[in-house]
Design a protein around this nucleic acid. Structure first.
Lengths: 210, 210, 210, 210
DNA sequence: GATGAATGAGATTTCATTCAT
DNA sequence: GATGAATGAAATCTCATTCAT
């Protein structure tokens, strides 16, 4: 009966992964002990090791899980919208709404751990960059499109524009990880204003090349 | 002659702190062993423990050192400029130039470690938040001023504006920590464009409530 | 089946405690290393720490174990005897016979370590005094009884009489700890003589208050 | 000028020895660190090592110092008294008065440490036994004399009698080390009573072999 | 002679991992 | 499949001792 086994195996991995995730968000990867994970998962050490080869493997798995996989879908939906402003606002709402969920703080803190690990651990950096690249590609397409439509200044490096969008998201996530009481809504308003031209209300000089 | 001793003590602390900083940027706080730090500092374990009570103390010290203290000066200089655009551009140049220094990558990676630790370790969170608050206050003054001058949309929550500025900085730092080859200049151009109204070139709707 | 586990746990604690006891008697508490104890117990460091939280805990446990618990029974038996002389002789035989057992020297040396520790370590002093008090109470009852019967000089402070009895026991134990070859029997004879009036054979003056 | 040097050297040794003694009484030999001793003596580590080769040497020296050297004189004085009772009372007063001096507790606790060490450390055992033997010899002479005079039961093993006297002294010292509040006077009364026949007031049987 | 910074061996303790049951 | 006792390498930290100044 490989089906049952398969399912069971997947379920257990899930269970252990979720437990580990909690622990990691709470204490960080390295201070978390296997005992912590076992206790959180309600399993014995032996059991955990049946499903994961090592603590590193659990960390690796947690790193993979950490990044939302639905990013793609959000982007795919967005690109069909041809009104740039509307699309940006939709995207912003979609992305930032994830920072207000019930376990957003857990998520955010775990992601901080992930970033720190990625900066330092070659094993997880690879897949991290890959995933980032995928989303970045999706965003790039959107940015280029908007530039084509004449909504974003065409002279700007589109990759840097994508980076700025990422930064506005991740940088805020960082702040909420450290202080979860920060309200999301007014921040999103500012982000929308920045991206859609209602932030700066002063004089705008003639384009560089006049 | 306590002067000599005092100076020596400070110098050694500096030396050990710098060594630890390197290690932390390279491996993270917890995977770094005292041996690593001793080797990097060229000292024996006993010597290191004459200057720091524990590894935790070294981490704490590194966390304090990590944040640039010159932020204040930059802001102090900026607030005297009354041309908002010019001021923002100056600020952006000043801040972002720090991400291209010779050991910027070390700095950036160490800061990732710091963020991760702050999210998880009450002992370092306190002083971290304090320092952040100080800078945030400086920025707030600038933002409020700019809103007063009619350069930033007055309806925007000024705290959120500050957060967005932080995010644009820290979020990019995160990216450079993970991939140091990213060029800073085009990103700074985008940031300036965002903040000074030359990013969005499409139609700008009438203010929400006209 | 918690029974097995419970029993196992107790057995292991016993085993480790006994091993530690040997080591302590051989080298003293502080010069004994955990390695010594592990080796004596035939266990790894990790195993030992599953049953005791720290070396201090092992010392504490050894201190508790060190004092014979059967003292009470001896005294309980004694108090039923109404012939003071016979009772004292029985008690002396019972107590001192313990100084000639196979591992009496180990015991004696361990007790020296205990005394030294008690004088210096608040943590173990408490329970030590408690246990001593219990035995002292038992002895006191006997002494008061004997005074009531007119066998011991009534004017003597009964607590000091008890102390003298303790001293005759512990002081000899001290000697045997240092030189185990000292024979017990002639010493016991002297003790009996002292307590039952056949030691001093010279003139006895009239009682103080004549 | 060897004289000055000699004197200086002796003075420093004294100073260090006294400091060490305090520390030992307070914490025991092994938990006492060289730093403790240096601090107590008001000297640097280097200075201490100029006068003592090692910590062991300091312990050894402390062990030598610990035992009162005036024992001999007391005994020498005593043996000239021909009234056994008077002599015993004088001896008891002389010896026990030492347990009430200002730093008697320090002394007592240090001696506990010494005993524990002697039981365990061959290096100090030798000189300890020697010194004990000297005093024991002095006491033996007194006891034999008293037996000759018909004051102590002649059938008793004189060495065991000496041991009993030691025990009454050391055993009480042990008690005072642990609880310094115990009063000495009533105890001495009991000791005198035991040794001079006024303790047991009941019927005394005929000598074993009549 | 004196200092006290430095050494480095060694002590205690933890924890990822294994394996007999 | 699951358990959890056992392992032992490795980490943090201490402290007796030395030696340049």
């Amino acid at each position: 009966m490989p089906k049952v086994s398969e399912q069971h195996l997947e379920a257990r991995k899930q269970q252990i992964g979720a437990a580990a995730f909690q622990c990691f968000a709470r204490k960080g990867f390295h201070p978390t002990t296997m005992q912590d994970i076992c206790a959180e998962a309600g399993l014995s050490a032996g059991a955990v090791y049946r499903y994961f080869d090592s603590k590193q493997a659990i960390i690796g798995s947690a790193c993979d899980v950490t990044q939302e996989t639905s990013d793609q879908e959000l982007l795919a939906g967005a690109i069909e919208t041809t009104d740039t402003r509307q699309m940006l606002q939709g995207l912003a709402d979609a992305f930032f709404s994830r920072l207000d969920g019930p376990d957003a703080t857990t998520q955010n803190r775990a992601i901080l751990q992930l970033w720190a690990e990625v900066a330092v651990n070659d094993d997880v950096r690879g897949s991290f960059k890959e995933r980032e690249a995928t989303i970045a590609d999706g965003m790039s397409a959107i940015v280029v499109e908007a530039q084509g439509r004449g909504d974003f200044e065409a002279a700007l490096d589109f990759q840097s524009v994508v980076r700025a969008m990422f930064a506005l998201y991740d940088g805020f996530r960082l702040q909420k990880a450290i202080d979860p009481s920060i309200p999301t809504a007014p921040y999103v308003t500012v982000v929308k204003a920045l991206l859609t031209g209602s932030f700066w209300t002063g004089v705008v000089p003639e384009p560089a090349k006049a």
